[in-house]
Every structure is written in C-alpha cells, then in structure tokens.
Amino acid sequence: MAEVSAALVKDLRTKTGAGMMDCKKALAENGGDIEQAIDWLRKKGLSAAAKKADRVAAEGLVAVASNGAKAAVVEVNSETDFVARNPAFQSFVATVAQVAIDAGSDIEAVAAAAYPGADKPVKDELTNLIATIGENMNLRRASVLEVPQGVVASYIHSATAPGLGRIGVLVALESAAPADKLEVLGKQIAMHIAATNPASLDVASLDQSLIARERDVLTEQARASGKPDNIIEKMIEGRIRKYYEEVVLLEQVFIIDGETKVSKAVEAAAKDAGSPIKVTGFVRYALGEGIEKQVSDFAAEVAAQAAR
C-alpha cells in the first residue's frame, strides 16, 4: 500500500470526520487520492457524512439566481434552521443556484456539475460541507425557467440573505417590453404567487383530477339543496368558476391592488409598456414542503440513552 503523509490524513479527517486509522487506510488503499479516499470511506460507512445520511433534513434554504432571460430556483436541505444561518452553507446554496442556471432542472445534473472554484462536482463539495458542519444535508430539487425574449423575475420571501430564504418564486414573462418594466411586474406577480400558492398558470393547465375532485364535492353539496337538476348544474358551473379564481394564477385577484385579476393586470402592464406581455410559467418552492419531519420524543431519547 502507498505511504501517506500525516498532513494528508489530517485533511481527510477534516473533510469526512472519520477516524485517523480509517483515513490512513483509505488513503493507502487509493494511492493517496483524497477524493477517491472520501468515496471509499463513504462506501464503507466510515465517513461522518455517510453516518448522517439517514437523518431527516427538512430545514435549509431556497435560493434563486438569474441572468435576465433565464433563472433558477433550488432547495438545499439541512437538519436544523441553525445551519441555514451558517455563512458556509449560505454560500454553498447560493452557488448551487448559479450552477443550476447552466446545469438545468435535473438535480442529478446539478449535483454532477463542476463546483465553481473547486476541482470537484457539487455533490462532493456537499459531502465536505456535511463533514465540516456536522449534520445531514441534501440537494433536493432545482427548476430553471427561460424565455427567448423578456425576463424571468424572481422573489425570495423570508429572506435570510440576498437571494436566500424559505420561499422562492420564479415568473417567466415573454415580451419585447423594456426589461425594467418587466422586472417590476414580474416581481409583483412573484410576490402574489408566494402569498397565494396557485395550482396552475391558467385553466387549461390545471390538473384535471383536481377539477374532477372539486366538481364531485360541489355536486354533492348542490344536490343536498333539493333544487332541480338544471339549477344544480348552473350552481356547479358557477362554483367551478369560483374555484378557478381561487387556484389558477391568471384568474386570481391580484394581491397588489386587491381588485384586478392577474390576467387583467398583465394586460394593463402590456398597454403601458407598449408591447404584449405573456406569462409563460412560474415555479414556487417552499422550504421543506412534502418532507415528512420526524417528531422526536425527548423523554424517550433520554431513556434509550440510559439503557445503553
């Protein structure tokens, strides 16, 4: 086996949290290559990062990054909100968002992309961060929006740092209108989306299963009124239109003025800008949504520790 220096062993220990002898063996088995040694330790379950991998990571940060006509939003999870305030973690998440602009919406492609300023992919930089900070982290998801002409505006709600927070929104506006006017409108719509969490951009793109489910509920409610079938059908259609106003972005009342539909606000902005404006898509990420968080029983944990 190859001879390894004490400095190299120390470096590997810092990166992985593994024991000294394990680090020495990992380096010897891999010809002194530290990146291969990291993978060797992870495969053996000896890396601190590997041991933390089964912990639920539902905190962390959402980040947005933009270059005008193209923007990305990413979510990187950690175990605790405390880590979200760590400058190293914040820098990593912000950098991942920048990487995603070119890497795209596939989180595996983002993980495999080169990490700026380091001779390694994003996933390996994350492994080092896990070992350094001491808790599990996860590259959860990424989305990228782009328009051939116009802007993709972004907004962060509950920001902890520029471009970082708990809710991130992208809005794609396709238009030949001046970019500054589009940015203002885009940010307003993004703020609206952060607040209302619409299910779709327009009626045509709304999940048909959601409509069917709502129609079924409304039908039962209407029948309970005892009215004739022709009246019931009109009641249902009226309530379906009301449902669209609740869950479809362009049908919702714009929170900026509390009166105008979003679609009408876009039309007014287009008239003011002197060019048609089309909202072609949006993405809304809320930190930890859909992740089943573990609820710990502190007394049970203490009892379990005492029994060891």
Rank of each mutant, 00 (worst) to 15 (best):
V295T: 13
P116H: 02
D216H: 13
V171P: 11
I189L: 12
A84R: 06
A224M: 10
S263D: 10
G17Y: 05
R241Q: 12
A303I: 04
T14I: 02
V99S: 05
V302F: 06
A131M: 07
A49Q: 06
E267W: 08
I240R: 08
Y244S: 00
Q208I: 05
K278A: 14
A7K: 09
V295Y: 06
D257M: 09
H157W: 01
S275W: 08
A71I: 11
A153W: 06
R213P: 02
K25N: 06
A194H: 00
A26C: 07
G238Y: 10
Q188T: 12
G19L: 08
E245D: 11
V122A: 03
Y243E: 00
T16W: 04
A177T: 01
T160Q: 03
A212E: 14
D272S: 13
T16G: 05
V147A: 05
A304R: 10
A71K: 13
K187M: 00
N77H: 15
A114K: 15
T132A: 10
P198H: 04
V4T: 12
E183S: 11
A199P: 01
R42E: 01
Q36A: 15
D22A: 04
G32A: 10
K264T: 15
A172N: 11
S66L: 07
R85E: 11
S154G: 13
E246W: 02
K51P: 13
V203P: 07
L173V: 02
F282V: 09
G226T: 15
F254W: 14
A265K: 01
A222G: 05
A269I: 12
G290E: 07
E267N: 04
I255E: 12
L46F: 03
S296E: 12
G117T: 06
T127R: 04
I101N: 08
D297L: 08
G165K: 14
D272L: 08
V64I: 08
V144R: 08
A84F: 05
K10V: 01
R141K: 15
S205Y: 00
S47K: 09
L145H: 07
S47Q: 11
A69T: 11
G165A: 13
T14A: 13
K43W: 03
N67A: 14
S158Y: 04
L139Q: 15
L206C: 01
I38E: 15
M235N: 09
E79C: 02
A48C: 02
V169T: 12
S225L: 09
G281Y: 06
A190G: 08
V171A: 13
E292M: 04
A84N: 02
M235G: 08
Y285V: 07
Q98W: 05
A109Q: 15
M191V: 03
E267A: 15
F82A: 04
Q294Y: 08
V247L: 06
